[in-house]
Amino acid sequence: MEVGLKPGEISLGTTLIAVAFDGGVVVGADSRTSMGGSYTVNRVTDKLTYVSDRIYCCRSGSAADTQAVASIVTYYLQLYAIQHEEEPPVRVAASLFQELCYKNKDALSAGIICAGWDKHDGGSVFGIPMGGSMHKLPYATAGSGSTYIYGYCDTSFRQNMTKEETIEFVKTGVALAIGRDGSSGGCIRLAVITKDGVQRHFIPGDQVPALGVI
């Protein structure tokens, strides 16, 4: 049995998108953390979480569970980097997430996207939804807000987008979800991960594109 949120638990009702492009990945998320569905505990949350120098995870579900899982994975990846004397590949990070989420599926409420760049595969994106399966994808969406943008993603996603096009695709996707999903909101946070490192973008609430506003 998978578990839902426990009473009083803080949740990341969320919109997450991660897209691979030639040379890297773009990950994006809203910034709302809520409690009991009506109170925003944190309006500037960073749900894009560092796990190694060129790998980030996007967290949805229980804040406590996903933070704990992410910090365990970070620890294992630090160990990997020392033992192998090289940066861990994204698929290793994703497998760690998958294993933790699968083996503890009874106790966890976590939907995770793991994305980043490594020298073997370039930019890659892995979806690890609740239950602990793992899916390598050209792009992944997750969180309560993702249901509102399936249509957008299906029609707008193209293979071989440039970095700038990918950023625009992710930003628009999060903005659309924020507009419809009550549990997503605040600002848009982006991270562009390439060979050269991580570049962070921040779009404040008053500059989030007001799409679909009549």
Binding site: I10, T33, T45, S62, A63, A64, Q67
Partner: peptide, 20 residues
Amino acid sequence: VSPHGSTDKLPYLCQGSGSL
């Protein structure tokens, strides 16, 4: 820090029944 073990890092914050 919340009872379930999640954390938030903010420049100002409140907790408890009077936090609103």
